[in-house]
Write a protein that binds this DNA or RNA. Sequence first.
DNA 1: TTATGGATATCGACC
DNA 2: GGTCGATGTCCATAA
Lengths: 261, 261
Amino acid sequence: MMKYKLLEDPNIEKSYDLVDKCIRKKAVLNIFAYCKVLYEGRALSQLDWGERFIMLKPDGSFLVHQERKLDPVNWQPPKSRSRAWIKEDKLILESYRRSPKEKLEVEIEKVHFASFAVAEDYQELELAGYEKDMGDMIMKHPSMIESGFTPTAREYSTEHGFIDILGKDKEGNLMILELKCRKAGVNAVKQIRRYLQDFEERDNDYLKEIGSEKKKIRGLLVAPDIGEDAKELLDEEGIEFKSVEAPKKLKSDKKITLDIF
Amino acid sequence: MMKYKLLEDPNIEKSYDLVDKCIRKKAVLNIFAYCKVLYEGRALSQLDWGERFIMLKPDGSFLVHQERKLDPVNWQPPKSRSRAWIKEDKLILESYRRSPKEKLEVEIEKVHFASFAVAEDYQELELAGYEKDMGDMIMKHPSMIESGFTPTAREYSTEHGFIDILGKDKEGNLMILELKCRKAGVNAVKQIRRYLQDFEERDNDYLKEIGSEKKKIRGLLVAPDIGEDAKELLDEEGIEFKSVEAPKKLKSDKKITLDIF
DNA sequence: TTATGGATATCGACC
DNA sequence: GGTCGATGTCCATAA
């Protein structure tokens, strides 16, 4: 089976043939073209004539990139349905999505180059260093928080959201931990403050559940760093802070030798 | 000046020359290659050998796309600094960011095809149908909320955030409006509940300011639709709901003829 | 299918 | 440079 095919300066008909083949053969289409883009769905948008990079993936993902920005200027998510046709000597690409109802239409006047490609790729990204990893690490090694700390619940539901980790210190005081995998802002502190209110005002069920005598309730923000404003509010509210980095370790043993900054 | 250049099945040195030229000339680089990707920064990731699509933009944006998904599997945002070199017969692409400190490294063993392109594009996206448009519309035509409604402030600051629109109904009762440009969830209702608490408990300054006699305070959620759970909570809390679509109209007079679904 | 919350979120506005 | 909020957020996960 053909892995790829390149077209340079193709006419509209040749371009259409390639696009059609990409859609039928589940290949990735890449086009550099002079085009105009319309979108209607959750919002409405228009991008007037100009040269852009278009990518259409076999899962239905559709991207239109301009020369700047990381994000595509227009797009459709996976599972969108693509069609193509020629209308008045222009190549039309359409991507349609059922729910929510959305449509993207690209009108192409000139294709500078286009490619058909089938990628052999059996790998998935391995990623480490986010909030879940941090929670895993703390549940596994609670003493890193402080000597005698014992987690009792994870993702504990309250009226104002989920508490990342609940636990007791060595004195038996209830501890409410809020985790942030990067620098914590003032919102993280407010979050803890709400949880504290929940427990202090009305939430005594859990205290009984864990046999707590309700000696004290400690709020603890766990993050690699904390912002200036957040620090102030934290001190005001008597909430504590513990500096912890999210663990940046991949599951596999493969060595990463990139840390020579 | 050259608009574009295409290479098919280039060797590593030819590939390097093209990449280098793209970086120097501020062109867009597109590559289809067999590669491996490492990332270290806010998190840590590794993507083992496979065929992917790489795009490098003149603003420093760096994207690595697999065959599936809308989002790139690895990336760097604009203003990242790119470099390239050959090492042990492999082409290395590196993208470095200062703050936060982040590095992306792509090791390329085989380039199937690559392109250099300079896009002529003087257009910006026109977009309509989001929250700001909705606010504009309501401030301009307050009666669409209800007969006699008078907005008195926009983006009114409270301890728990900004109230989208404050106003009075024809009886002089204070109204708190929360706008959502799409289906409102339970969080939108909770948001209003917090604002209501702010006013009922301690925020009398504004009431004096607008000369309100504090007859009643009405919370009103304005959105095109509302979720099941949100509806329940809303009824419980005595908050009201008004169905309003965000205005989908572009500023320019250009006609959009896409609405023939 | 819908609801919920995290993300290497990105991006723009404001300070 | 930060801080904050919106996004056509996307995305995985759970219900």
